[in-house]
Design a protein around this nucleic acid. Structure first.
Length: 420
DNA sequence: TCTGGGGTCCTAGGACCC
DNA sequence: TCTGGGGTCCTAGGACCC
């Protein structure tokens, strides 16, 4: 059996941890640059705040409805996430951290245990130790565990936040109840195609002929169809190391100068380097893209990306910056106002087993240099030591007007308690 | 004025090989 | 009238997820 554990309204719940007066009140959390809504408490959902709602269009509503708005505080969310995951990993040796607020647990060899009880215990311990509310879904496949989790969330009173699909009868009832669009792995396109052939419920989907599913939805759809019928086709996945690393940002305004875009791209490349070194990987391919503001179709639009094979694998920020600028030069065109750029590194090889090339090699001193750089930045703070080609004066700040303190990771921002 | 930032997997089709 | 059959690798783009 699998369990899918999911933190309820995770970012909003994190913001409430140290502001208990916000319990029961509407809370929303905004994306980078305070751009759009990416998390909502139940109360905010009830007020009709949609996921992805642009913040500037909702300012009035936020004020009128007394909605508590926060900028995203990833230092806090990341730390709370790892606390939750640490607790979960006590309950099973096989855990896949699926996202910042979700984990799959595999319960092989737990035949003699009451998994629903284990789920309830997990829920109790996580709530008590972290204050984060969770929902637990238990089922024979990952897709069904996702569905069971949905049931636990939708019917908190009846389920107590924990639901197990552990009999054939419960399985049939669950898949007959939910619409096909509710399924993990069925997005807008598939939903449309399925509805067109008369599929409404998940049960309908499981009854479709296999070749139709294979043809229309590839093997991915076929696997999903089996999973929903209770046949296991997906196992836990190893999520330790990333296969791609992307650093992409919107700019604070339209950039019309090459030099400004170049500075951003260099900075993104150095961050890629940091993340590569963190997981002991080197990359063999780098991709750079730029585009204008797609929300302003009346302005001239331009969008391009280029992918370059590196002459040798590297994770040096300096070398990556150099290749990224190379790439940027190939796609940059004067006369446009650029709003966003990104650097993506791909095709990793382990840092300790680099293939040496005959003519071109990474400068062997780079490794030591980067180690020192990482050490300094760890001690002094992110981006304190930069490349000269980065903007040394400008402290790059995104808009985060409603940022809460980093309560759990910075001593100087720890909660203050006033006693009378 | 103002709209995020990450990821994964799969397929079709082109280019090439024998 | 009429020109095989088997492969691999790469890329772009689609679909999905949080």
């Amino acid at each position: 059996m699998f369990a899918l554990v999911d933190c309820n309204n995770f970012y909003a719940s994190c913001e409430r941890l140290f502001r208990p007066e916000l319990n029961g009140k509407p809370v929303v959390v905004l994306s980078n640059n305070d751009g759009c809504v990416i998390a909502r408490s139940n109360e905010a959902k009830a007020l009709g705040i949609e996921m992805g709602a642009p913040a500037f269009l909702f300012e009035k509503k936020f004020k009128e409805q007394h909605i508590n708005v926060f900028s995203s505080n990833y230092a806090l969310y990341g730390d709370m996430s790892s606390r939750v995951m640490t607790i979960l990993s006590k309950y099973s040796p096989d855990v896949e951290v699926y996202s910042i607020d979700e984990a799959f647990l595999k319960f092989d060899g737990f035949k003699l245990f009451d998994l629903k009880k284990i789920g309830e215990q997990m829920r109790k311990e996580v709530t008590k130790s972290t204050g984060i509310p969770i929902s637990v879904g238990i089922a024979p496949t990952k897709a069904l565990a996702k569905l069971a989790n949905k049931i636990a969330k939708k019917f908190p009173k009846q389920t107590g936040g924990v639901h197990a699909i552990d009999t054939q009868d419960k399985l049939i009832r669950a898949i007959a109840f939910f619409k096909i669009g509710d399924v993990w792995g069925i997005g807008r396109q598939h939903e449309k195609r399925l509805k067109a052939v008369g599929v409404e419920s998940i049960l309908d989907f499981t009854l479709l002929p296999e070749d139709w599913v294979k043809k229309q939805m590839s093997v991915v759809g076929l696997r999903l169809q089996k999973e929903l019928a209770g046949i296991r086709t997906l196992d836990l996945e190893d999520t330790k190391d990333k296969k791609n690393i992307a650093v992409t940002r919107s700019f604070d305004e339209n950039y019309t100068e090459y030099g400004k875009v170049k500075e951003r791209v260099i900075t993104f490349a150095t961050i890629c380097g940091e993340r590569l070194r963190k997981q002991d990987s080197c990359c063999n391919v780098i991709q750079v893209f730029v585009h204008t503001n797609t929300f302003r179709p009346e302005q001239p639009q331009y969008s391009r990306s280029v992918t370059i094979d590196l002459p040798y694998p590297t994770n040096s920020s300096m070398e990556l910056a150099h290749f990224a600028v190379d790439a940027l030069q190939r796609i940059y065109k004067d006369g446009y106002g650029y709003k966003k750029a990104g650097v993506i590194v791909m095709e990793f090889t382990p840092a300790d087993s680099k293939q040496q090339m005959l003519f071109e090699n990474s400068d062997p001193k780079q490794g030591n240099l980067m180690a020192v750089l990482d050490k300094l930045n760890k001690a002094l703070g992110q981006q304190k030591v930069k490349l000269a080609s980065q903007d040394l004066d400008k402290v790059w700040k995104m808009k985060r007007a409603k940022l809460s303190p980093r309560y759990t990771t910075r001593l100087d921002e720890i909660i203050t308690v006033h006693c009378r």
